[in-house]
């Protein structure tokens, strides 16, 4: 029987420091065993447990899309013990990945609809995966208008700058990347995410919105969404709670009767309305 606690061995193929504060780093990982790679069948919105031997395991959203090939991408903000140990691993190091875990964004519900993606800070990881997935040649026709609203404090704090540059040149995504205030050399939008959302005003008709970001961003964006006519069922977010097993067994991450690791991390605002606010 497969042991769900046993990580797959992977090699760090490439690391990229994403942000000017050098606190956020991306890791491109390749599986050591082909079989593990085949078993790791994921959908954007899911996460994995990353292991550094002797340090422990942490849940991190999968930032790559399965349409990008066999490697996995994770983007990690340096916070404490394990994230710091991870930042200290060099290219070529061996580490562990366990997953994919959790549900995913509701692509079955998003199909045939306009999709608005709203993100802020380092929570942009699984949103990157989602956009790459929807923009993929094989999938693009499944979705209506795609609108992106993504904000960071400064231009230097934006993640995935190369990918953003590619998207900005496409005509099949309404691209809105914003920074909090004017900065030298920045020619894009300026303003906080809620205000930009109000200006961009994505239509709520036959649409789904996915919102991930710091709590304050979500707090001030939700009223804008309501004003735009998005119902709680149409508004999707992803939760983070402290986790251990990641498979709905260790009892760590529950919000009411739901385990964020297994029943989530993706929930609609309609679901969250029925749940205690313990996240």
């Amino acid at each position: 029987m497969k042991n769900p606690y046993l990580p797959y061995p992977v090699r760090i193929e490439k690391t990229v420091i994403e942000t000017e504060d050098r606190n956020i780093k991306s890791f491109k990982l390749v599986f050591l065993n082909d079989d593990d790679c085949k078993t790791f069948d994921y959908t954007p919105g899911q996460f994995a447990q990353l292991s550094v031997t002797g340090k422990g395991e942490i849940p991190i959203g999968i930032a790559s899309s399965p349409t990008e090939g066999d490697h996995l991408l994770f983007t990690v903000n340096k916070m404490g013990v394990v994230t710091t140990a991870l930042h200290n691993l060099i290219e070529g190091s061996i580490m562990g990945v366990r997953g994919p875990l959790g549900n995913s964004y509701p692509f079955d519900k998003m199909k045939g609809k306009d999709v608005t993606i709203i993100g802020g800070g380092y929570a942009f990881t699984t949103l990157r995966a989602t956009i790459v997935y929807m923009l993929d040649k094989k999938n693009r026709a499944d979705f209506g208008k795609i609108t992106l609203i993504y904000g960071a404090r400064t231009p230097g704090m934006l993640l995935y700058k190369d990918t953003l540059a590619e998207w900005s040149k496409r005509d099949d995504i309404n691209y809105n990347v914003t920074v909090d205030r004017d900065a030298p050399g920045w020619t894009g939008r300026v303003g906080f995410v809620p205000a930009v959302t109000e200006q961009v005003a994505p239509s709520s008709k036959n649409a789904i919105a996915v919102i991930c970001g710091p709590p304050v961003m979500i707090k001030y964006t939700l009223p804008v969404m309501i004003k735009l006519g998005f119902t709680p069922e149409q508004t999707i977010t992803s939760l983070e709670n402290r986790m251990k097993c990641g498979i709905g067994i260790c009892g760590r991450c529950n919000v009411g009767p739901e385990y964020v690791c297994k029943d989530g991390p993706v929930f609609s605002m309609a679901q969250l309305k029925e749940m205690p606010q313990e996240y």
Partner: peptide, 14 residues
Amino acid sequence: HCFDIQDEVSKEGG
């Protein structure tokens, strides 16, 4: 049944 998961290290590994 709640449990924590931790890594413990020794000289050779852990």
